[in-house]
Design a protein around this nucleic acid. Structure first.
Lengths: 210, 210
DNA sequence: AGTTTGTCACCTAGGTGGCAAAGT
DNA sequence: ACTTTGCCACCTAGGTGACAAACT
């Protein structure tokens, strides 16, 4: 499904995947028990590279590594919300725009956490896993924990490429079609974008103030 | 400046004052060094009573109690932002609406913190001090600290009465005049509200959808 | 007697992609 | 070659007080 890059513009790249960790800890994070969403802002410079690697992580809900020994943690399961939408993007090759001021992700990384003990305290961590072996400028400060009280989940459907302008017009159209904030751009036929790289039909500059 | 209560409605009352504490602690709260604002939501039931007491706390920026021994804390000064606006409200008797879902304060409790050591870690606390001796249902869980590492500031200008509907129309008009979110109500002459308790000039039900 | 809920018009705040121009 | 900035129209989200009705 190779689509020609419509603009001859930026191509800063980095295939990443969003992951979630759960561990028992001494600190309390008041969170809704049913569903939680993270809205990290994607800030440039973002870890970038050019290779198109892919993780070997298991599919949704499957923890990496051996099971934790702490029963409060071992019983926890995490489900990705909007899984169908994530997969739809992933089939086209999800792109996320990064800006200096920071940019929301869309789709949003939102999960449902099941199997928690309502009397226990948990700590939740969310991070980005670089899919290539390029330098990861943002971090390396992973918290060290005993293997018994930690359980992490990787969702390969959420992998994406960090870009400045969009590269694939079908991604743009899918964002416009599925993101409520981009409703204002829902007019033209989505199919007219898949083959050609023509500029927009020159919307005739609607009434401006003054 | 006694103004008759225009509605014969609620009068759930409680005179409070917002305060700010600063203490050196082991935890880091990433905050802008220059100015910070708190947006606690005022939730009913709110500590209520009927007496119109007043605190004996010092004016703005003056810490209560003896000075702390920790130099990182003793050098700290706190300034109330929008002091003139707070005083304007306070002269009329500030009212804050409380609702079950929680309601923003206006004016916002916003302060500028000066004299912090950029290398040290601080913890900031903000709470409400009841001005009457009625039961304070929300709390009593004040953190105990050694007297040396704590410094608290009380701003008497920020005292207010918790209400469900507004009691003083001049407060309502001042909120409308000064809160950007209430711009939609800026039309009528403010002075026409000070004396009478007449209902609104019956805005003739502007065009409704359907 | 007081609170809660709902609806209303109007506003702020800020998230969308597009585009052109300037910056690096 | 790529990033940043600024502007645009259009949208979501939610903060305002007013008011009426229902609730407790």
């Amino acid at each position: 499904m190779a689509v020609p890059a419509p603009h001859n513009k930026a191509f800063g790249q980095a295939f990443l995947s969003a992951g979630l960790g759960v561990l028992a800890a001494s600190e309390t994070y008041p969170l809704p028990m049913s569903s939680s969403s993270w809205e990290p802002r994607l800030v440039s410079p973002f870890p970038s590279g050019l290779s198109t690697g892919s993780t070997g992580a298991q599919a949704m809900g499957e923890p990496t590594g051996q099971g934790p020994k702490n029963p409060h943690v071992s019983s926890v399961t995490v489900q990705l919300e909007m899984k169908a939408l994530w997969e739809e993007f992933n089939q086209l090759g999800t792109e996320m725009i990064v800006t200096k001021a920071g940019r929301r992700m869309f789709p949003t990384f939102q999960v449902k956490i099941l199997g928690m003990d309502s009397l226990a305290d948990y700590a939740l961590l969310m991070d980005f896993v670089p899919l290539d072996d390029k330098r990861y400028r943002c971090g390396g400060h992973r918290v060290a924990h005993s293997s018994g009280d930690f359980k992490s989940f990787v969702f390969t459907e959420t992998q994406f490429t960090a870009v400045t302008p969009y590269q694939n017009h079908r991604i743009t159209q899918l964002k416009i079609a599925s993101n409520p904030f981009a409703k204002g751009f829902r007019e033209s036929d989505p199919d007219s974008w898949t083959a050609s790289a023509q500029p927009l039909p020159s919307v005739p500059a609607r009434s401006r103030s003054s």
